[in-house]
Design a binder for these strands. Structure first.
Lengths: 150, 150
DNA sequence: GATTTTTCTGTCAACAGCGTCCATTCCCAA
DNA sequence: TTGGGAATGGACGCTGTTGACAGAAAAATC
């Protein structure tokens, strides 16, 4: 994990389809060397996945919301986590400090799906309390935040 | 935007390095047809970017936090948005309903960078009030949430 | 402390496979 | 019947991949 690796990750985060030759030119290395470094970055788990950033609206996921979860005292936290990890609407789920237990980011086709989602959380007795915040618009959205500094 | 397109996006979200031949086999189309569809998905903005999911810890970004911003009544919202869009620590910034104006997701090397960040927001007179929530661990984190349903 | 050994990382060349492009064909709607 | 959009198939050039080799750095040996 040196400066060259970081630069390579930065380039890939911007455009993962850049060719090895191209990246090699940017970091002054041969294509094979770049390939080997990428292979190692993947093997070491620094690069988790090659993927695609999507316009969720275009895919029919019009609603983005944050659900603050105050876990019920008797709730099984492991079960809750498994449920969150597997639920198709859940984009993110973080265990957080402060008054709430978890911050859950969800995407759904419409507001109509929100109530059933919350209902299921309640029914499974996960919730002591919750608060849902709906995102109206996004100034910035998970676009490559690799740069360790400006 | 038909079922085939959605399937292609889903496949790419899982692994953007799958070959056209491979994807073609999955959706029963020739590689050229898949290529043309992907080209169009990119052109139409459905696919925003080819990128890479990263282990931020490995890159030295150990801290993930949510900053809830209550915008000052006299703050210039456009300036605030520009500032957020350009700040290297800001991973996401959403305009939200409820008691707060914005939900800002930030990543930093350590907790030490948090105070200067908040200080700058204050100094620029953006803030009426704010609340910072730190993520201790993540059950799930922006791993391909393409599926409109299970 | 110098020399050998090992390990790690890069270069180079060769090849198979890939994305890209274009002409052609097919199919559906007008 | 005709026109337009989408898929096919083949050709081309580039790309990723691999393996053999070279050089530097670190570890071990004398």
């Amino acid at each position: 994990m040196d400066a060259v690796d970081r630069k390579i990750v930065e380039i890939l985060a911007e455009d993962a389809r850049r060719s090895l030759t191209d990246i090699g030119a940017a970091v002054e290395l041969s294509p094979s060397a770049v390939n080997e470094r990428i292979r190692r970055l993947v093997a070491n788990g620094v690069i988790r996945n090659f993927t695609v950033e999507v316009d969720h609206r275009a895919l029919g996921l019009d609603v983005l919301a944050f659900v603050w979860v105050g876990l019920a005292p008797d709730a099984d936290e492991a079960t809750f986590r498994t449920f969150m990890a597997g639920h198709p609407a859940v984009a993110e789920c973080h265990h957080v400090t402060g008054a709430w237990s978890y911050c859950v980011k969800v995407r759904m086709p419409s507001l109509g799906e929100l109530e059933p989602f919350l209902a299921e959380l309640k029914q499974r007795r996960f919730l002591a309390r919750s608060e849902t915040v709906i995102a109206l618009s996004s100034v910035r959205e998970s676009l490559a935040t690799t740069a360790p500094r400006g």
